[in-house]
Protein backbone atom coordinates (compact mmCIF):
# COMPACT_ATOMS: atom_id res chain seq x y z
CA UNK A 1 0.00 0.00 0.00
CA UNK A 2 1.53 3.28 -1.02
CA UNK A 3 0.60 6.75 0.16
CA UNK A 4 -1.82 7.53 -2.64
CA UNK A 5 -3.69 4.32 -2.17
CA UNK A 6 -3.91 4.65 1.60
CA UNK A 7 -5.51 8.02 2.11
CA UNK A 8 -8.86 9.24 0.93
CA UNK A 9 -7.37 12.60 0.10
CA UNK A 10 -4.80 10.96 -2.14
CA UNK A 11 -7.57 9.10 -3.93
CA UNK A 12 -9.57 12.29 -4.38
CA UNK A 13 -6.59 14.03 -5.93
CA UNK A 14 -5.99 11.08 -8.18
CA UNK A 15 -9.57 11.03 -9.44
CA UNK A 16 -9.51 14.77 -10.00
CA UNK A 17 -6.23 14.56 -11.85
CA UNK A 18 -7.51 11.74 -14.05
CA UNK A 19 -10.74 13.58 -14.78
CA UNK A 20 -8.74 16.65 -15.74
CA UNK A 21 -6.43 14.61 -17.94
CA UNK A 22 -9.26 12.82 -19.73
CA UNK A 23 -11.21 16.04 -20.05
CA UNK A 24 -8.25 17.75 -21.64
CA UNK A 25 -7.65 14.92 -24.06
CA UNK A 26 -11.32 15.02 -25.08
CA UNK A 27 -11.17 18.77 -25.52
CA UNK A 28 -8.10 18.29 -27.69
CA UNK A 29 -9.80 15.66 -29.83
CA UNK A 30 -12.87 17.84 -30.18
CA UNK A 31 -10.83 20.90 -31.11
CA UNK A 32 -8.90 18.93 -33.71
CA UNK A 33 -11.75 16.96 -35.23
CA UNK A 34 -14.86 19.01 -34.50
CA UNK A 35 -14.63 21.25 -37.57
CA UNK A 36 -14.03 18.22 -39.78
CA UNK A 37 -17.11 16.44 -38.42
CA UNK A 38 -19.24 19.53 -38.99
CA UNK A 39 -17.87 19.75 -42.50
CA UNK A 40 -18.73 16.09 -43.12
CA UNK A 41 -22.28 16.65 -41.97
CA UNK A 42 -22.67 19.63 -44.24
CA UNK A 43 -20.91 18.05 -47.20
CA UNK A 44 -23.19 15.05 -47.12
CA UNK A 45 -26.08 17.21 -48.26
CA UNK A 46 -24.26 19.86 -50.25
CA UNK A 47 -22.42 17.33 -52.39
CA UNK A 48 -25.70 15.95 -53.61
CA UNK A 49 -27.31 19.29 -54.43
CA UNK A 50 -25.82 19.68 -57.94
CA UNK A 51 -26.63 16.06 -58.80
CA UNK A 52 -30.21 16.41 -57.67
CA UNK A 53 -30.76 19.65 -59.58
CA UNK A 54 -28.71 19.14 -62.73
CA UNK A 55 -28.56 15.37 -62.98
CA UNK A 56 -25.45 13.22 -62.61
CA UNK A 57 -24.04 13.98 -66.05
CA UNK A 58 -24.32 17.75 -65.93
CA UNK A 59 -23.04 17.77 -62.36
CA UNK A 60 -19.98 15.80 -63.41
CA UNK A 61 -19.37 18.19 -66.30
CA UNK A 62 -19.64 21.13 -63.96
CA UNK A 63 -17.20 19.43 -61.62
CA UNK A 64 -14.78 18.73 -64.48
CA UNK A 65 -14.82 22.43 -65.31
CA UNK A 66 -13.84 23.07 -61.74
CA UNK A 67 -16.99 25.01 -60.98
CA UNK A 68 -19.41 24.54 -58.15
CA UNK A 69 -22.85 25.82 -57.36
CA UNK A 70 -23.24 28.49 -54.72
CA UNK A 71 -25.57 26.97 -52.15
CA UNK A 72 -27.48 28.92 -49.50
CA UNK A 73 -29.55 27.02 -46.95
CA UNK A 74 -32.81 28.49 -45.62
CA UNK A 75 -35.24 27.22 -43.06
CA UNK A 76 -38.85 27.45 -44.13
CA UNK A 77 -41.77 27.05 -41.74
CA UNK A 78 -45.01 25.92 -43.32
CA UNK A 79 -48.09 26.24 -41.15
CA UNK A 80 -50.70 23.58 -41.60
CA UNK A 81 -53.53 24.07 -39.18
CA UNK A 82 -52.27 23.04 -35.76
CA UNK A 83 -48.91 21.78 -36.99
CA UNK A 84 -45.95 23.73 -38.26
CA UNK A 85 -43.65 21.81 -40.54
CA UNK A 86 -40.05 22.87 -41.00
CA UNK A 87 -38.10 22.33 -44.19
CA UNK A 88 -34.53 23.12 -45.06
CA UNK A 89 -34.56 24.70 -48.49
CA UNK A 90 -31.27 25.04 -50.34
CA UNK A 91 -31.00 27.70 -53.00
CA UNK A 92 -28.41 26.86 -55.63
CA UNK A 93 -26.93 29.48 -57.97
CA UNK A 94 -24.47 29.11 -60.79
CA UNK A 95 -21.21 30.98 -60.42
CA UNK A 96 -22.46 33.82 -62.60
CA UNK A 97 -25.46 34.37 -60.35
CA UNK A 98 -28.08 32.58 -62.42
CA UNK A 99 -30.48 30.59 -60.29
CA UNK A 100 -29.91 26.90 -60.89
CA UNK A 101 -32.68 25.47 -58.76
CA UNK A 102 -33.84 24.49 -55.31
CA UNK A 103 -33.36 21.48 -53.12
CA UNK A 104 -35.67 20.58 -50.25
CA UNK A 105 -34.56 18.36 -47.41
CA UNK A 106 -37.48 16.52 -45.91
CA UNK A 107 -38.06 13.60 -43.63
CA UNK A 108 -40.87 11.30 -42.61
CA UNK A 109 -41.92 7.90 -41.42
CA UNK A 110 -41.31 5.14 -43.94
CA UNK A 111 -42.02 1.46 -43.42
CA UNK A 112 -39.37 0.58 -40.88
CA UNK A 113 -37.94 3.90 -39.80
CA UNK A 114 -37.56 7.52 -40.83
CA UNK A 115 -36.65 8.24 -44.43
CA UNK A 116 -34.67 11.42 -45.08
CA UNK A 117 -34.49 12.68 -48.62
CA UNK A 118 -33.59 15.55 -50.93
CA UNK A 119 -35.98 16.74 -53.62
CA UNK A 120 -34.59 18.92 -56.40
CA UNK A 121 -36.67 21.48 -58.26
CA UNK A 122 -35.77 23.79 -61.12
CA UNK A 123 -35.63 27.57 -60.78
CA UNK A 124 -39.39 28.15 -61.08
CA UNK A 125 -40.32 25.01 -59.17
CA UNK A 126 -42.13 23.96 -62.33
CA UNK A 127 -40.32 20.65 -62.50
CA UNK A 128 -38.99 18.11 -60.06
CA UNK A 129 -35.45 17.56 -61.22
CA UNK A 130 -34.41 14.66 -59.08
CA UNK A 131 -34.52 12.80 -55.80
CA UNK A 132 -31.89 11.51 -53.44
CA UNK A 133 -32.37 9.34 -50.37
CA UNK A 134 -30.04 10.49 -47.59
CA UNK A 135 -31.01 8.07 -44.91
CA UNK A 136 -33.28 5.03 -44.72
CA UNK A 137 -33.53 1.75 -42.89
CA UNK A 138 -36.14 0.04 -45.07
CA UNK A 139 -36.13 -3.73 -45.50
CA UNK A 140 -32.99 -4.82 -47.37
CA UNK A 141 -33.83 -6.28 -50.74
CA UNK A 142 -37.32 -4.82 -50.80
CA UNK A 143 -37.91 -1.34 -49.40
CA UNK A 144 -34.31 -0.25 -49.71
CA UNK A 145 -34.69 -0.36 -53.50
CA UNK A 146 -35.89 3.23 -53.13
CA UNK A 147 -32.22 4.25 -53.20
CA UNK A 148 -31.63 2.67 -56.62
CA UNK A 149 -30.98 5.03 -59.51
CA UNK A 150 -33.53 3.41 -61.80
CA UNK A 151 -36.37 3.86 -59.36
CA UNK A 152 -35.41 7.39 -58.36
CA UNK A 153 -35.08 8.37 -62.02
CA UNK A 154 -38.86 8.19 -62.27
CA UNK A 155 -39.02 11.50 -60.42
CA UNK A 156 -36.56 13.30 -62.69
CA UNK A 157 -37.83 16.04 -64.95
CA UNK A 158 -41.47 15.75 -64.09
CA UNK A 159 -43.89 18.68 -64.10
CA UNK A 160 -45.09 19.71 -60.67
CA UNK A 161 -48.61 20.46 -61.88
CA UNK A 162 -49.90 16.97 -61.04
CA UNK A 163 -48.90 15.17 -57.87
CA UNK A 164 -47.01 11.92 -58.24
CA UNK A 165 -48.99 8.78 -57.68
CA UNK A 166 -47.85 5.25 -57.00
CA UNK A 167 -49.15 2.64 -59.39
CA UNK A 168 -48.58 -1.08 -59.58
CA UNK A 169 -47.36 -1.75 -63.13
CA UNK A 170 -47.09 1.81 -64.41
CA UNK A 171 -48.56 2.34 -67.86
CA UNK A 172 -46.69 5.53 -68.57
CA UNK A 173 -49.38 7.94 -67.40
CA UNK A 174 -48.51 11.44 -66.23
CA UNK A 175 -46.33 11.39 -63.11
CA UNK A 176 -46.96 7.75 -62.41
CA UNK A 177 -44.45 6.05 -60.16
CA UNK A 178 -43.98 2.33 -60.41
CA UNK A 179 -44.45 0.72 -57.00
CA UNK A 180 -41.55 -1.47 -55.92
CA UNK A 181 -43.00 -4.96 -55.69
CA UNK A 182 -43.14 -6.03 -52.07
CA UNK A 183 -42.54 -2.49 -50.88
CA UNK A 184 -45.63 -0.51 -51.76
CA UNK A 185 -45.55 1.25 -48.40
CA UNK A 186 -41.98 2.50 -48.89
CA UNK A 187 -42.76 3.66 -52.43
CA UNK A 188 -45.87 5.45 -51.27
CA UNK A 189 -44.09 7.05 -48.33
CA UNK A 190 -41.38 8.54 -50.55
CA UNK A 191 -43.95 9.73 -53.08
CA UNK A 192 -46.00 11.33 -50.31
CA UNK A 193 -42.96 13.23 -48.99
CA UNK A 194 -42.12 14.47 -52.48
CA UNK A 195 -45.69 15.60 -53.12
CA UNK A 196 -45.88 17.32 -49.75
CA UNK A 197 -42.55 19.06 -50.15
CA UNK A 198 -43.44 20.27 -53.63
CA UNK A 199 -46.90 21.52 -52.74
CA UNK A 200 -45.69 23.16 -49.53
CA UNK A 201 -42.71 24.88 -51.02
CA UNK A 202 -43.77 25.74 -54.55
CA UNK A 203 -45.44 28.99 -53.43
CA UNK A 204 -42.53 29.78 -51.10
CA UNK A 205 -39.95 29.43 -53.84
CA UNK A 206 -41.60 32.24 -55.78
CA UNK A 207 -41.56 34.44 -52.66
CA UNK A 208 -37.91 33.74 -52.00
CA UNK A 209 -36.98 34.50 -55.56
CA UNK A 210 -38.74 37.84 -55.53
CA UNK A 211 -37.69 38.91 -52.08
CA UNK A 212 -33.93 38.82 -52.49
CA UNK A 213 -33.95 39.26 -56.26
CA UNK A 214 -30.60 37.54 -56.44
CA UNK A 215 -31.78 34.71 -58.63
CA UNK A 216 -33.82 36.84 -61.03
CA UNK A 217 -31.89 38.01 -64.03
Amino acid sequence: MNAIQRTNLGQAWLVLLLALLFGMSLAGVQAALGPKIEENKLKETLEKVPVVILGQQAADELNAKGETLVITPNTVAVEKGPVTKYYTLYKADFKDGTLAGWVVKTKGQGYADKIELLVGMDADAAKVTGLFILDQKETPGLGNKIVEDAWRAQYSNKETTTPFKVVKLATGGVNEIDAISGATISSKAVTKFVNQAVSDLKPRVAQFKDSDGKGVQ
Partner: peptide
Protein backbone atom coordinates in the same frame (compact mmCIF):
# COMPACT_ATOMS: atom_id res chain seq x y z
CA UNK B 1 -55.93 16.93 -41.07
CA UNK B 2 -55.01 14.34 -43.65
CA UNK B 3 -56.59 16.58 -46.24
CA UNK B 4 -54.65 19.54 -44.96
CA UNK B 5 -51.41 17.62 -44.90
CA UNK B 6 -51.81 16.34 -48.41
CA UNK B 7 -53.11 19.73 -49.57
CA UNK B 8 -52.70 18.54 -53.14
CA UNK B 9 -55.67 16.83 -54.72
CA UNK B 10 -56.24 13.40 -53.25
CA UNK B 11 -54.61 10.63 -55.18
CA UNK B 12 -56.89 8.85 -57.64
CA UNK B 13 -58.72 6.02 -56.00
CA UNK B 14 -58.14 3.32 -58.61
CA UNK B 15 -54.75 2.07 -57.49
CA UNK B 16 -54.87 2.64 -53.77
CA UNK B 17 -54.94 -0.04 -51.16
Amino acid sequence: EVAMEMSVEPIQTAMIE
